[in-house]
C-alpha cells in the first residue's frame, strides 16, 4: 500500500519531473532542428551555400586534358590549384571539385559559377540527430526519447487535480491539441 503522499499522482509527478529534466536537451535539439527543416523550401537548414558568379574569359582546350584546364581555371580565379576531381556535365563545360568548393565553368564564354559550402554551426549536427542520419545506436536513443515524450504527455495530463486538471480545463485543451492535427489531416487528405 502506498504511503501517504506516494500515490499514483506522486509517481506521475516524480516521473514527469525527472524525465522532463532528462529530455530538456533533446527537446531543444529536436525543436530547433524542427523549425529549421520546416522551412527547407526557403533555405538549406544544414549548409550555408555561397554562390558567386564571375567571368574569366574564354578558355581554349588546346589539346590539354581536363585536369590541366582545371588548373588553368583555378589559377585565373586566384584559387589554390589543388582539386579532388573534375567532371564534364555538358560538352564545353567543366566542373572542378575542391573540398567544399565547386567551380563550374562554361569554357567558351568563361562564365564561372562558384559554390562554397559551409556546414551551419550547431544546426548541421542538430539536423543530423533529428533526422537520424547517424542511424545505429542513435536510433535507439531517439526511440527512447520518443517513448519519454509519450510518458511526459501522459503523466503531464494528470499532474493537477480539480478544475484545472484533466477533468476540467485540461480536457478541453487536450482535446484541442488532438483536434488541430486531425483538422489538418482532414483538410489535406
Amino acid at each position: 500500500m502506498a504511503r501517504r503522499g506516494r500515490g499514483w499522482r506522486w509517481w506521475f509527478r516524480t516521473i514527469h519531473r525527472d524525465v522532463g529534466y532528462l529530455c530538456v536537451g533533446l527537446v531543444l535539439i529536436y525543436s530547433i532542428s524542427g523549425i529549421a527543416v520546416n522551412h527547407v523550401e526557403d533555405w538549406n537548414p544544414s549548409y550555408s551555400i555561397e554562390v558567386t558568379r564571375s567571368n574569366i574569359g574564354p578558355i581554349a582546350a588546346d589539346g590539354r586534358d581536363d585536369e590541366a584546364i582545371a588548373r588553368d581555371v583555378l589559377e585565373r580565379l586566384h584559387s589554390p590549384t589543388d582539386f579532388r576531381t573534375v567532371f564534364v556535365p555538358e560538352p564545353g563545360d567543366l566542373r572542378i571539385i575542391r573540398t567544399n568548393h565547386t567551380v563550374d565553368i562554361e569554357l567558351g564564354s568563361g562564365d564561372v559559377r562558384q559554390e562554397r559550402v559551409t556546414p551551419r554551426f550547431m544546426l548541421r549536427g542538430f539536423n543530423a540527430l533529428h533526422l537520424n542520419h547517424a542511424k545505429r545506436l542513435w536510433t535507439w536513443i531517439a526511440d527512447a526519447f520518443a517513448v519519454a515524450l509519450i510518458v511526459l504527455a501522459i503523466t503531464g495530463m494528470f499532474l493537477l487535480k480539480g478544475k484545472k486538471g484533466i477533468t476540467g480545463r485540461g480536457a478541453w485543451l487536450t482535446a484541442t491539441g488532438f483536434a488541430i492535427p486531425l483538422f489538418f489531416l482532414w483538410l489535406y487528405a
Partner: peptide, 19 residues
C-alpha cells in the same frame, strides 16, 4: 471534452491511413 478526446483518438488511425 472527454467524448471529443475519445473521438480524436479513434480518428487518428483514419487520418494516418489517408495520409
Amino acid at each position: 471534452p472527454i467524448t471529443l478526446f475519445v473521438m480524436a483518438l479513434c480518428a487518428l488511425p483514419l487520418g494516418c491511413t489517408k495520409d
